[in-house]
Amino acid sequence: MEIVYNGNQDSRLYKAVIGETIDALMKEDEKVVWLDADLRGCSGTAGKEGDRYINCGIAEANMIGIAAGLSASGMKPYAHSFGPFASRRAYDQAFLAAGYAGNAVTIIGTDPGITAAFNGGTHMPFEDMALYRAMPEATVYDITDVPMLIDTLKKAKDMPGVKYIRVPRAGSFQIYADGSSFTPGKGVVLREGTDALIVASGIMVKEALEAAKALAQEGIECAVIDPITVKPLDVDLVREWAQKTGVVVTAENHNRIGGLTSAVEDALIGMPLKFGHVAVEDTWGEVGPLDYLRERFDLTCDHIARVVRELRA
């Protein structure tokens, strides 16, 4: 895996990438269908014509149920809404009509966690990964960068079951080279190190790399792993590097309950380790600019570095 992170913001917007990728998939495969809940303007699909773009209106539960029915009829549905509505609002539909009933549905929840920013606490899911992790056979992605998003959207098309993809709409930092290929359940070691392991997903991958860089200045060498999928988690890889380092810190834009932190803790049960986390401390979201929210919820490279130092002290 080629890592191209250089600290510069990617000029591509996630939402534009979603629109372009879905449009290409539609042209390539006549079974692809896109469902939206009055948020086509937020998913990059606005203005794209065709009877396979279905606007369900503001009715997310109905949308996910329709997606399940479309799958049963042989179509390959993608359904989008903001994270809280793609998870909490339509969870029973995703759970039963899609998952339990054996229908293949790709659900895209945009603006996860603090990236909901100015939409505030009502739109700020810190629990979406927890919900989808609790769904048998579901695959849960916390998107790290544009190349991962493109590859994930393409591969999800022909994967069985429920795929939950949480992804911001706005800018990102490129971590992986364009054209990179990812495998669900196979994590990526972004950096090797012997003193601590940071397991980070989504927007926190960049923060983890910055923390590792800062800690290296102090002589603390951190390994950094992006799990790619929070479920299934690459348990073998996480355990291998936990064993090598003895100190593990998770970093996620999500409640510490039920998401990446819980998944890694589960994977490491019984190992003699020092374990810490950088995550939302079981509290509600709130409104504000992204930079403010990063500090408000301690989702920063500085905090990751602090937790690593404390565990090593």
Partner: peptide
């Protein structure tokens, strides 16, 4: 009701 809609729409 929604899954039936999906089936009919898919057809």
């Amino acid at each position: 009701t929604s899954t039936a809609v999906g089936l009919a729409l898919g057809d």
